[in-house]
Amino acid sequence: MKLFISPGACSLSPHIVLQESGLSFEIEKVNLKTQLTETGAAFTEINPKAYVPALLLDSGELLTEGPAIVQYLADLAPEKNLAPAHGTLARYQLQAWLNYVSTELHKSFVPFFHHGSDDWKAEGKENLETRYAYVNQHLATQPYLMGENFSVADAYLFTVTRWLRVSKLDLATWPHLAAFQTRMTERPAVQAALTAEGLRS
């Protein structure tokens, strides 16, 4: 398998999951401005959506969209317990968290990355404050989103929360979330992904 990434982007989430899974994989970086991969390939010919993450399977098929990719990877390594079993309520709760991070957190950062207007940024900041307050409260009684154990939803939350600096919001506002970020950073798989993407000094 090959995961196409842009360092620090949302593709960090499946990259972390791959590191956690123990599966064999390679990564290829994409310059999202030029739409060229680090080997010189035209990324839009690989993924017409023109954004990361994109997972090229050994069969030649392409899987896109982070929440789908991380669940696929979790199911390839069931012994790692990265996602609850299909058909269980816990699996739907995991999907609920993946959707929350995607639509309520990830999308609220868009105006900060795409030169949004001051009004749009203010709206995004307000949304983030409200949504992160909810996450912080949830993490007050458990170390991870799904309870005592890491899941693929945590990789996604960790990834987007790293972007807080662009919104000028202070992580310290949410102590339980801050503790979660520290906890995640200490995981060997997270450290390996950050190192591979050049995000650690």
Results as ranks from 00 to 15, higher is better:
4 F>W: 03
4 F>S: 02
4 F>E: 04
6 S>H: 12
6 S>P: 09
7 P>T: 02
9 A>S: 03
9 A>G: 05
10 C>W: 00
13 S>V: 00
14 P>W: 00
14 P>I: 05
15 H>T: 07
17 V>K: 00
18 L>A: 04
18 L>C: 02
19 Q>K: 08
19 Q>E: 02
20 E>M: 14
20 E>I: 10
21 S>A: 10
21 S>E: 10
23 L>A: 15
23 L>N: 15
25 F>G: 05
26 E>K: 15
26 E>G: 11
28 E>Y: 08
28 E>Q: 04
30 V>A: 13
32 L>T: 04
32 L>W: 12
33 K>N: 12
33 K>Y: 08
34 T>I: 05
34 T>V: 15
35 Q>P: 10
36 L>W: 02
37 T>Q: 02
38 E>S: 14
38 E>T: 05
38 E>D: 11
38 E>M: 06
39 T>A: 03
39 T>S: 08
40 G>S: 14
41 A>H: 02
41 A>T: 03
41 A>C: 01
43 F>Y: 12
44 T>K: 13
44 T>M: 06
45 E>I: 02
45 E>R: 05
45 E>G: 15
46 I>T: 09
48 P>Q: 07
49 K>E: 07
50 A>E: 08
52 V>S: 00
53 P>I: 07
54 A>M: 12
55 L>S: 04
55 L>M: 10
60 G>L: 14
61 E>W: 15
61 E>Q: 13
62 L>F: 09
62 L>Y: 11
62 L>H: 07
63 L>D: 09
63 L>R: 11
64 T>N: 10
65 E>I: 13
67 P>R: 06
67 P>D: 12
68 A>Y: 11
68 A>W: 09
68 A>S: 00
69 I>L: 05
69 I>M: 10
69 I>K: 01
70 V>G: 00
71 Q>I: 07
72 Y>E: 06
73 L>D: 05
74 A>R: 02
76 L>V: 15
80 K>S: 15
80 K>T: 01
81 N>Y: 13
82 L>W: 02
83 A>Q: 14
84 P>F: 01
85 A>T: 14
85 A>E: 04
85 A>K: 10
85 A>Y: 07
86 H>G: 11
87 G>V: 11
88 T>R: 09
89 L>R: 11
90 A>I: 03
90 A>D: 03
91 R>T: 11
91 R>Y: 14
91 R>W: 13
91 R>P: 03
92 Y>A: 08
92 Y>V: 00
93 Q>P: 01
94 L>V: 12
95 Q>T: 15
96 A>Q: 11
98 L>V: 08
98 L>R: 02
98 L>I: 00
99 N>W: 04
99 N>V: 08
101 V>A: 13
101 V>N: 00
102 S>P: 07
105 L>V: 09
106 H>P: 06
107 K>N: 02
107 K>I: 15
109 F>I: 00
110 V>E: 10
110 V>P: 01
111 P>I: 07
112 F>E: 02
113 F>P: 01
113 F>R: 05
114 H>A: 14
115 H>N: 14
115 H>M: 10
115 H>S: 10
116 G>S: 09
117 S>F: 12
